[in-house]
Computed example of a mutant assay.
Amino acid sequence: MHSDFPILLGAGLVLLGIFYLGILSLKINFPSVILYILFGIVLADVLSDNEILHFASEIGIVLLFFLLGLEFNVKRLGGIAKKIWSSGLLDVGLSLGVAMLFAFLFGMDWFSAFIVGGITYATSSSITAKLLDDKSRMANAETEFILALLIFEDLIAPIIVAVILGIHTSGEFHTSDIVLLFGKIIGLALLAILLGKTVFKKFEELLIKIDDEDIKIVLLIGLSVSFGGLAMLLGLSEVLGAFLAGMMLSEIGKIERVEHTVSPVRDLMLPTFFVYFGTTIQLGNGLPLPWLIVVLIIWSMIAKILVGIIGGRWYGLSKKVSLRAGLSICARGEFSVVIASVATGTVKILGGIYILIAAFIGMILFDQAPKIANKIYGKGKKQSRNLKVPGS
């Protein structure tokens, strides 16, 4: 019956629902992102094929990471990369490797266990970045570490997806395929740097000359979406492409001009991503391997907290800030959904249930992270870094 439901009516009702849930979240002091995801789950049968919702969600997530990319020029990103690689590898070992071992011990074959490890690996970049913005924590001492770790995961997660798809479709995956994938990532990054240093070197002058705000919106969104689409064409994540597009324009003198133009569109589109994300979670019938789900939930939260505590210290953060970082990176999201969609049967249902619970618990831990850190280490002087909220 839902096939006869007008797509435009569905999109309009989604926007009205987002408005109501946004007001509700403010009244009850509850994360709006969770409400949006639950909204999508409830309306999954009606909205699963809604093309407008899907399109809007893609634009929203692309613009979020485009604006984040603006804060990281090549020099700054290079400095971060030198500091984050050890924490990133620790994350792979704890969040993917150990979870994979648990799945194998519960009777899964190695390929299914690898899919489960992939599902539990990556922190939700979109949820975490949105909460950093919502909670006014973009300027906190731990935020650079968190964003650096998310970027590292956004580089590793496409490789995991490619390996799983390669084995799933052909039964095997060659070393040359991984080399090719790394080549695509490096090539896309070099293209962004080259364009930023040449074609877009005087981009700010062009923006000043354009008086019509609508034309600016078309230009900037066109650039971010095109680079995200190029990444997808290469078999990479649109999130990575959008971030690189932002980095491409980060060399201009005043990025506030770009932020001021793009932020309103991002704020309109981004909530639709979380609604659409909710529609993709297939809970199925029954609860497969309930004890494995419990173990995975508990361990995946512990793993991320350990990555924050240990990796944060390696990155140069204090014990208190490292703990706050670890508590802030527990939510799973978009890459977990992509990986779970490759699975079948029990693993697919397990993945859907895991993602929903992990997203919920992760957002609660994010919300409570400052309080927990203060309770353990006491309140100290607020430290901040020169990282502005995109669109502020």
Rank of each mutant, 00 (worst) to 15 (best):
H2G: 10
R76K: 15
S263R: 13
G79H: 03
G253H: 11
N50V: 06
L249D: 08
A369F: 00
S124W: 08
F277K: 06
M100Y: 06
E213H: 12
V62F: 04
S95F: 00
L43C: 12
G222C: 11
G391N: 06
S392Q: 13
F277R: 07
G333D: 03
I372S: 01
N374I: 04
V33A: 08
S336I: 11
I221T: 15
E51G: 10
I34E: 01
I23N: 15
V74L: 12
L234G: 09
R385M: 13
A157Q: 04
V347A: 08
S32P: 00
E334C: 05
G380Q: 11
K202H: 14
G97F: 09
S95V: 09
L191N: 05
F273Y: 13
G222L: 10
L220S: 07
S25F: 04
I151N: 02
L387Q: 05
D367T: 15
L38R: 01
V179S: 09
G93D: 09
V199K: 00
P370A: 03
A113P: 11
L317Q: 05
A148N: 05
E142G: 09
K184Q: 12
S263T: 14
F182A: 13
F366K: 00
A325K: 06
M138N: 06
N29R: 15
V14I: 15
V199G: 04
L13Y: 05
G312T: 02
R137S: 12
F66W: 08
G380W: 03
G380I: 10
T198D: 10
H54P: 01
I186M: 11
M247G: 07
Y36S: 07
N386C: 02
T346C: 00
V163F: 13
K197T: 10
L63S: 08
L387Y: 01
K375M: 12
